[in-house]
Amino acid sequence: MIDFQFMLELIFMGICVGSVYSLIAHGFNITFWTTKVVNFAHGPFLMFCSMLILMFLSIGFPWIVAILLEMFSISIIGVILERVSVRPLVKSPTSMGWIVATLGVGLFLQALATKIWGAQALAFPAFIFESTDYVPILGISMSLQYLLVLGTGLGIMLIMELVMKKTIWGKAMKAVSFDPDLASVMGIKSKSVVTISFILSALLAGVAGLLIAPIYGNVAPDFGMNIMVLGFVAAVLGGMGSSKGALIGGMTLGVIEKLVGGYISTSAEHGVAFAILILILAIKPEGLFGIKAVQKV
């Protein structure tokens, strides 16, 4: 007999963790819109952010200062990444060099983190709520930490969606992604918009890092890559470039993972994620909400 309370708890946890995957998928989307590039350094960005926060905290800064410093640092790293590994390579539209280039920056950051902070996992302190803080809702006890992740994730995605839809800057970003030449003829600094998109994406990585690290409880240099791959699966599942896709793809993946972890084995969680990736790419490569792309050869 199925224990509904246990299942509800798993689903709830899945949705919360999934909202972080959604945030990562969203970070992929933003740079994908403006450059059609998937930034494979996104995961190491996320890891680097968590590490930076840890470092600033250990120096003795309060949380808020540590977070601001970390956001500032990651923005700069985002700009550098765009200049070094994306801008020179997107000039020739058929080039796939950005895959290696962004991945290269990612591996560099990972190695740098190992060099600075060591390869061992470091304990990440609880943020705002302790991991033992619960509220009972619908008969199940919900972790406040998980709720915080869910709330922040949803809030940020909602704000971003409003900015994209309602403000002239969002429209400009959409314009650059639709036709960069036309956008510059309309007076938009296409290059600046691309740079801004990389900053925004890096900031999202920063937020995702801040949210997920306390749940994992510790961070190691390779944790970014691992979680990025899950965000990537979420983005592909939902459809690369789709906001709705990122949201639903992330949460679906989160729920499936937790259900598999709860009923089969936690070590099967990630394997299932990859199985989903393979299935989606084979059956419906444009994802749930993506637009079918036709590539001229």
């Binding site: 429209k171 314009a175 036709d179 030449d181 036309l182 309309m186 600094k189 296409s190």
Partner: peptide
């Protein structure tokens, strides 16, 4: 984008528009 501000307007070949945005937003941009 600076030449545009100097007063050079360009209507490109092939009726290029932001087709996924509204008429009003195209004018606004």
């Amino acid at each position: 984008e600076k030449r545009v501000k100097l007063g050079i307007g360009h209507v490109m070949e092939g009726r290029r528009l932001f087709k996924d945005q509204s008429v009003h937003d195209n004018l606004l941009i």
